[in-house]
């Protein structure tokens, strides 16, 4: 049998204000949404908050709505809902990503907010308490050194959420609230390159949702793909989201990666792919893209799969997605 959960008090606020007041009153509290990440970690002896503030009864967080300038998705929307919601048909990368998080039962409980705040992961961290104890714990929690990079001062655990890169290539902004007010950040500014403190979220701050700019042009396309150990259900060893936008010069690509760094990494390709390019020029362009991706990510020994392999794989996946979307978009404009 696995270890029972440590004791805590469970609060059930009915609205965001009450949740924020509870967070202010209980500085050691944690929010719990679907629980599919937090409860697993707590069972492994990672964190023992005295209070959990459940977000499950806050209806306002479960809203998906069209706004004047795009779309709002509440933090409490489940990934199963996102995977089948018709408003996401123009945001293919987001829908693709929602379909490949964990397995069907997890997606029914897992929320978008929980996915964006997912704890970072590492071979030396996602283990039972006795395992980590026998190994002297680690820098991320209760220990002194990072077993992945023992001479470094920083935890190298990797961010492995699937949704963040997909939202980033669509230009998402995240909305955060405390009892004192609300702030908005580009999603990429929500993350830091430190595996032990990878979010700019304050302890009494809540993610209320994300805003997406409109994306109704038929030709703007995107996709998400990942590699994982168990193909059917697993965190990404590495994942790639890509969006391509037709611009005057041709096609412009924006890429984002997960599983490779302590934060999801966003890369805007400096040059567009010339729509009139011949085969050789196109090939050069995609070679350049692959090289840029390899330089932009820094996978570490956080999984049983070697960093070098993950670096090559993420670049190859990025190229494959870019070639596919470029071909689709050329076919689309020829047909149109």
């Amino acid at each position: 049998m696995s270890a029972p959960l440590p004791e805590f008090t469970l609060l059930h606020p009915h609205d965001v204000d009450a949740a924020l007041a509870a967070a202010k009153a209980h500085p050691e509290a944690r929010f719990v949404a679907g629980g599919t990440d937090l409860l697993v970690n707590m069972r492994h002896g990672i964190g023992a908050p005295d209070t959990l503030i459940s977000l499950s009864r806050i209806k306002a967080l479960r809203r998906i709505s069209a706004t004047d300038d795009g779309l709002f998705i509440g933090a409490g929307v489940t990934l199963a809902e996102l995977a089948r919601h018709p408003v996401l048909r123009h945001y293919e990368a987001i829908r693709d990503a929602a379909c490949v998080v964990a397995g069907p039962s997890h997606r029914n409980a897992a929320t978008l907010g929980g996915n964006l705040c997912l704890d970072t992961r590492c071979l030396y961290y996602n283990q039972s308490d006795w395992w980590r104890h026998s190994n002297g714990y680690c820098l991320k929690y209760r220990g002194e050194i990072c077993h992945v990079a023992p001479r470094g001062k920083r935890c190298r655990a990797a961010f492995c959420g699937d949704m963040a890169p997909a939202l980033m290539v669509h230009g998402a902004r995240i909305e955060l609230a405390t009892a004192d007010g609300t702030r908005h950040l580009p999603l990429e500014a929500f993350y830091l390159e430190d595996g032990a403190a990878h979010l700019v979220l304050a302890p009494d701050e809540i993610v209320t949702g994300v805003y997406l700019p409109p994306n109704d042009a038929d030709s703007a396309r995107s996709a998400y793909t990942k590699i994982r150990i168990r193909q059917a259900i697993d965190f990404p060893l590495a994942g790639v989201a890509l969006a391509c936008d037709p611009v005057a010069e041709g096609l412009r690509f924006r890429l984002a990666f997960t599983g490779t760094n302590a934060r999801p990494v966003l890369v805007d390709l400096p040059e567009a792919l010339d729509s009139g390019a011949n085969d050789a020029t196109r090939d050069d362009y995609f070679n350049g893209l692959e090289k840029l991706v390899q330089r932009s990510v820094s996978p570490q020994r956080t999984t049983t799969t070697q960093p070098h392999y993950r670096r090559l794989a993420v670049a190859a996946m990025a190229r494959r997605l870019a070639v596919g979307l470029a071909a689709g978009s050329a076919a689309g404009s020829a047909a149109g």
Binding site: S2, L10, G35, L39, R43, S54, A80, H106, N108, A109
Partner: peptide, 30 residues
């Protein structure tokens, strides 16, 4: 059944309001 207690195995599957969930990752109070 409890196969893992960490959401990995599905032996604890039940439905909650018609949705399949891993009951080892749902708090009883919920």
């Amino acid at each position: 059944k409890e196969g893992c207690g960490s959401g990995d195995c599905g032996a604890c599957s039940v439905t909650l309001n018609g949705r399949l969930v891993a009951s080892c990752l749902v708090l009883g109070v919920e």
